[in-house]
């Protein structure tokens, strides 16, 4: 059908075509549309003149502003560094005690530590640093490698069983798997270990057997009194804090299969200033937060 009609409602003519009952009005394109086309095109033109935009054969139009995203990013990174420069160098140079003494620096530590901790350490140690099975609680006084400023800084810097050349190395031997101890012996010594922190009260025979086994096999690392040895990262077995757990099963597994905790080295990934912020967070801020 090809009869032009007039739409009674709008007064516009139709194009005269009809498809399955559908017709089209021949309404002119509203002026607002032409304006919008004009404005967006002018805007695009201005952007093209100002910014890198059109490809040429071997290069591209650089734009009057002469900007490039790589340089922009470099610039922003440097600006950020300049902004932090006032405290970063000071922190890196000072000892932890010196930092503790200077309120301005401690303010920086307080402000930036939670995020640094949350983004780097919380995945293993938890937001509050209390750890979980396999990951030690860092807010207590039971340190594997010592709780002095230097020891903590060093633990963070080189990691434990990590890839750093100076990494701390520690291992709980797999006494069962290596056939050093039988399963019964392990049960005995496990019971003895539990008795040290009052978790279990085995009968005297078993305890004596366990104690003998312990004195022969374990004291070299865990110490005569089983209170651990920071030099080899062996934990204190007489306190209430456990890395892997104090249940029969967990202790049996620790002794039978051995343990080899892994903590990444942070040197190269965190700056010296950041390392100090975290150490202070661990030593001063987190324990108070509990």
């Amino acid at each position: 059908m090809s009869v032009e009609e007039r739409d009674p409602l709008t007064g516009h003519k139709t194009t005269g075509h009809e498809w399955n009952g559908i017709t089209e009005l021949n309404t002119r394109v509203p002026r607002a549309v032409w304006w919008a086309i004009g404005i967006t095109h002018v805007w695009a033109l201005i952007i093209w003149i100002l910014l890198p935009s059109w490809p040429l054969i071997t290069t591209y139009t650089k734009g009057l502003l002469g900007v490039d995203q790589r340089e922009l990013v470099q610039g922003e990174i440097q600006a950020g560094q300049r902004y932090r420069a006032y405290w970063e160098a000071n922190l890196a140079a000072a000892s932890l005690d010196e930092i503790r003494g200077e309120q301005a620096l401690m303010d920086v530590v307080v402000a930036s530590a939670p995020t640094l901790w949350g983004d780097n350490c919380a995945a293993c140690h938890g937001m509050l640093g209390v750890g979980g099975p396999g990951f030690p609680n860092l807010t207590d006084d039971a340190w594997l490698w010592g709780g002095s400023d230097e020891a903590v800084l060093e633990s963070i810097r080189v990691g434990i069983n990590a890839t750093h050349p100076d990494t701390r190395v520690s291992e709980m031997l797999a006494f069962g798997q290596l056939d050093v101890l039988t399963r019964d012996q392990i049960r005995a010594v496990a019971a003895y270990v539990q008795s040290l922190s009052g978790l279990a009260n085995p009968n005297p025979e078993v305890r004596a057997e366990g104690q003998t086994i312990f004195e022969v096999n374990c004291t070299s690392c865990h110490g005569e009194d089983a209170t651990g040895m920071n030099e080899v990262g062996a934990p204190n077995l007489t306190d209430e804090f456990w890395i892997y757990g104090g249940s029969d099963e967990a202790i049996f597994t620790s002794i039978h299969d051995g343990r080899r905790g892994w903590m990444p080295a942070w040197e190269g990934r965190l700056s010296e200033a950041q390392n100090k912020i975290l150490a202070l967070y661990l030593l001063d801020i987190l324990p108070d937060a509990q």
Binding site: A36, I47, L51, P55, Q69, R70
Partner: peptide, 22 residues
């Protein structure tokens, strides 16, 4: 992606608004 390609994508996306709204 080079900056100039991003600029082109941005400008054409904005010009695209008019036919879309139309």
């Amino acid at each position: 992606l080079p900056h100039w390609v991003q600029t082109l994508g941005m400008t054409f996306s904005v010009m695209l608004l008019v036919p879309s709204w139309a």
